[in-house]
Each structure stands twice: as C-alpha cells, then as structure tokens.
Design a protein around this nucleic acid. Structure first.
Lengths: 267, 267
DNA sequence: CGAAACTGTATATTGCATATACTAAGTTTA
DNA sequence: TAAACTTAGTATATGCAATATACAGTTTCG
C-alpha cells in the first residue's frame, strides 16, 4: 500500500524534504520488525497504536486523528509514538491496510464469475461504509499491503474465470474497484458533510432540491431542468442519497458488456 | 458543489461548531454578491483570490494552499481574505467550480450518444489532469456550482439519447463520472507520491515490481502471483502507470452493456 | 461635517507534526 | 559486578496553519 491520507484541513505545507531512508509502512506491514533486546521493555506496539488510531478515525474521522489523540488515549505522549512508527503518514498507511482487513472468502460457485465479482464489490462497499476515512487516504503505490493484495487477488480470481487476456483482466479490476471506490466516496462525502458545513442531515435533501429548482435554468441546462421538473432531485428518490442502486446498475451493465465482449471474441 | 477539500495533512481537528449562517460558496458562485457603496474601495475580489489560489494549488498541490500563501502572493495579509470569503473551506469550494470551467460544447453528431459520452469522459479526465487537486476535494452536496451543473447537464444530454428511463440515466451518469474520477485519482495519487514519500518517479516502477515479486507468495495470492510471473507489474506496461487504457476498456464494455440493455428492452 | 459602513492590519489563540536533547531502564560485556 | 551500550519514553521548542477579535484608516450618505 503506502499511502498518505487526506483531511479536511490540509495543514502542514510539505515540510517534507527528501525523506529519511527510514523503515516505511510496507516493512512494518510485512512484519520486518527488528525486536531489540537491549533497552527498557516497550510499553506500546505498532498494533496497539494502529488499533487506537482506527478507533479514532472510525469515530471522528481522519481529521480527528492526531498523534496527540492516539498517544493520549493510550496514556503516552505524542512523541512516544515515533519509537514505533516513523511518522503520521506511515501510521495512516498501516491503519489503511489493517482496517480493510482480509477479503471475505470467495465461496461463490466455481465458474460463476459474475456472482463473484458482485460479492466482491458489495464486500468492499461494506468496508468503506465501516471505515469511511479509507476513502480519503491517497495511495502512494499500487496495492502492496498484505490485505490490499489479498483483496486484489480475490477480485482477480473471479475475473480470471471470465476468459479475458491478462491485461484486460487488470483493466477490468482497476475499473471496477475504482467505480466502487468513487461511488462510496461520494456517498460518505455527502453523509459527512454536516460535520463540515453544519447543515443538518435532515435538511440537506430539501435544500438541494430547492437549490436545484432555483438554479436549473431551462435554457442553460436543458436536460437537467427536465429531470428537475420530473422531481428526480427531490429528497426522497434522489439518486445521490443512496448510491447503491447506481452502483448496481452500472456494475450490471458493465458485466453484461464484458459478457458480450468475451462471447464475441469466442466466435 | 459545496465541498471541502482534503489534504495530506489533515490538520485542524474540527474546531467546527455548528457553523455560522454565513454566505456560503453557492451564493458566491452564483453571484449573490452584495456590493456595498460605503467604505474604502476593495483592493481584492473573490475572483482574484480564487485565481491565485488555483495557481498555487496547480503548482504545489492542495497542501501548499494556505490563506497565508494566497494573501502574500497578492500582497495582503491572510486575514484580509476573510472580507471576501467566509473561510478556507468555502474558498476551496469556489476554486473547485472555477477550475473545472465550463464543459466543452457537445458537438458530436446528434444521435451518436456513444461518442458523446466518450468525449465527455476524456474531457473530464483532461481537467483532472490539469488540476489534480480537484480529486482531493470532498463534496458537501451533489453538484450545485454553475460549472458543475453544466458538466452534469452535458453528460445527461448525451445519455438522454440512449433510451433509458430517467432514473437509469442518473445511475449511468453517476457511475460513469465516478469511474473516471477514481481512475484519475489513482493516477494522480501515484504521480504525486514522490512529493510525499521522497521516492523519485524513476524508481517507483522498479520498486513496485521488485516488491511484488517478493511479496506475492504463490499459495497466498495464487492469481496475483501468476500475473506477477507474467510480468504484468514490470515498470513498463504496468496498468497502474497509465490508467487511460483501463478507463477506455471499462468504458467501452459499460457502453456495450448499456447498448444491449436498451435494445433488449426494445424487444 | 459626522456617523455609519466598510477594508485591511495587528495580534493572539489553538492545534498540529515533529526535531532535539535528555532521563531512566534494561542488556551485554569486560 | 560495574561500566558501556541501547533503547523507551519525556520535555521542550519550532514552525506553520486557520481564524477570532479589536482596531486604524477610508469612503459615502444624511
């Protein structure tokens, strides 16, 4: 994995120089832990730190995750964490892979790749719903963490039954995982917006509907204004309120398309 | 629109209370500007501020965008900006809509919705490539800014020629725009990672390939390890290096699927 | 002219990541 | 067994960020 997170307040202009050649998140995640025998007994561990960090991020978002917060919840000073983790960035990398956890076992009937892909998609969707902050972490590398690789492998497994070239398999995997990810992101962005804007959830839908009615001039936005007129943006039934139907629709069409692509080539 | 940005360093834990009922970004973007006649001539303007902010974000990323940076580049103090914009969050909202600009005119042959959708997709992709920081801004509402609505309307226009129900049109639009967005995000995350990790771009590909070879145990990641063995993650040809082929492949299959969906229903 | 409305500034507060120097607790070895 | 070495955790300080608040100067209206 290796990623860096994003937060509402981008503080800290890249003080970043070239980065010390320290142990990175990958090494930590893959257990390259050198356990020294000398000094005092460690009171903390990467695991404990990561667990606490995840609790904080789950509860209050990535914005609330600070070295301070983690340390004090553990009864230590902020600086003590640096004995276990080179910096906040690497900590976020670590909790990313930790929080996604292992993928669910692929126990769809062998050969039913379609069901497999769908199961995978909804499983990731679930993980994102559980840890919305995952969606704000920026990747520094393609998948590399152990759990990330496991998810990657699982989706590839399903896709490998389709009958695509290897390159096409990768394209499909990248496309599908990107689509879920962004739809989940849209969803959590909106549901977290009250925390940022102060507009209560209950009023958001109504406010959006009203704004759309006001703003969608017929001449300027011809197609959109027709949809507004058809009440497509009313609080109930607004597709943005629940992206799952959109994800389902898009995914079904995509898999249909894959199907016909493969069978067309078979001929 | 109405969004809040995300940055590498999520500083500033939500000091946020319930948020003053101040003029928000929407009002600013739609020109609800009350121009008073009394006091001194304003030396600044939302436009000038936004322009400068975009320059900074384009050049050095969202992390480098601070009220300080914007103000001092304009020759003012940070606090002066607050006469024009209620806060940084709203400023980011404003530059979001400003930077995406208007969509390109939809001059594809009438009836060729497929070409229209594709043109739209590649046009957004271009915008994201020009302003990568757009991808780190979290939406507070579904599209509401003038330019956002224009892009929305344009894609809906193309999609409206397909022959879908209105609800399905929305699903498709949400799915497609999400997919482009995430693929673009993946791409810029990776290309910006040197700034964060210090690993030079030239070495990233090689390092990833090497790490994958080391880590993809055959028993643990059976499918993945086959792809590694087939050199799918070598620096040249790694699908993550250039997501455009993946975007193209996914989009083509999706549109194929839409095609057959519509013609199946026609019968 | 003087009050009101406004622009920009100065200053202070609070939160953050993290560098550096230090204290204390273990381990190894002479 | 004691000195040397390593390590864990702490204290302190730095620098940057957003932004609240009080104020000084500017312009216009009555």
């Amino acid at each position: 994995m290796a990623s860096s997170y994003e937060g509402r307040w981008t503080r800290l202009a890249p003080r970043r120089r070239t980065k010390a050649p320290q142990k990175g998140s990958i090494e930590i995640l893959w257990g390259d832990r050198n356990t020294p025998s000398r000094g005092p007994r460690p009171g903390l561990s990467v695991e404990a730190i990561a667990e606490t960090a995840i609790e904080i991020a789950d509860a209050d978002g990535l914005d609330a995750l600070s070295m301070q917060a983690v340390a004090s919840r553990l009864g230590y000073t902020a600086m003590s964490l640096y004995r276990y983790v080179p910096g906040k960035e690497q900590l976020v990398d670590v909790i990313y892979d930790t929080a996604i956890g292992p993928p669910p076992p692929a126990h769809t009937p062998e050969g039913d790749w379609r069901a497999g892909v769908q199961a995978w998609v909804w499983a990731v969707q679930d993980v994102y719903a559980q840890h919305p902050w995952l969606l704000r972490v920026a990747a520094n590398t393609p998948p590399l963490g152990p759990n990330q690789l496991a998810w990657f492998d699982t989706l590839l497994h399903h896709v490998s039954e389709v009958g695509l070239e290897q390159e096409e398999m990768l394209h499909l995997v990248i496309f599908v995982s990107g689509a879920v990810r962004d739809l989940a992101r849209t969803s959590t962005d909106l549901s977290e917006s009250p925390r940022r804007t102060g507009v209560p959830v209950e009023r958001m839908g109504e406010e959006y509907a009203v704004a759309m009615k006001h703003l969608t001039d017929e001449a300027r936005f011809p197609t959109l204004s027709k949809m507004v007129a058809a009440d497509m943006f009313e609080p109930d039934g607004n597709a943005y309120n629940d992206i799952r139907p959109s994800l389902d629709f898009g995914l079904q069409r995509l898999l249909d398309g894959i199907d016909s692509y493969v069978s067309a080539r078979a001929r």
